[in-house]
């Protein structure tokens, strides 16, 4: 399960923006939305005749595998970094 997402944005002639997003507290705050999204996903699975449990399991496996993911893109003095820990 991801714990921290680091986002860094470098822009020319401006101060770089660096943000740390703690995933668990954010998920707690957004939990009503997450529950609604899960329900919507379950309904979509039923409509398209896909196993709800299998879909939820796969979704959870994907979320659990996210730590270690890192995207670092730079062009000249502009750059974006997204790292999931």
């Amino acid at each position: 399960m991801p714990q921290l997402v680091t986002v860094r944005v470098n822009r020319p002639d401006r101060r770089p923006i660096r943000t740390w997003v703690p995933v668990f507290p954010i998920m707690l705050v957004l939990s009503p939305v997450v529950v609604l999204a899960a329900l919507a996903a379950a309904v979509a699975c039923l409509v398209y005749r896909v196993s709800v449990m299998r879909a939820l399991g796969t979704g959870w496996r994907i979320v659990s595998a996210l730590p270690g993911t890192r995207f670092d893109i730079e062009h000249g003095r502009t750059g974006v970094l997204v790292a999931i820990r």
Partner: peptide, 8 residues
């Protein structure tokens, strides 16, 4: 330019 992507 530089792209550095790491995917588990």
């Amino acid at each position: 330019g530089r792209i550095n992507v790491r995917v588990p």
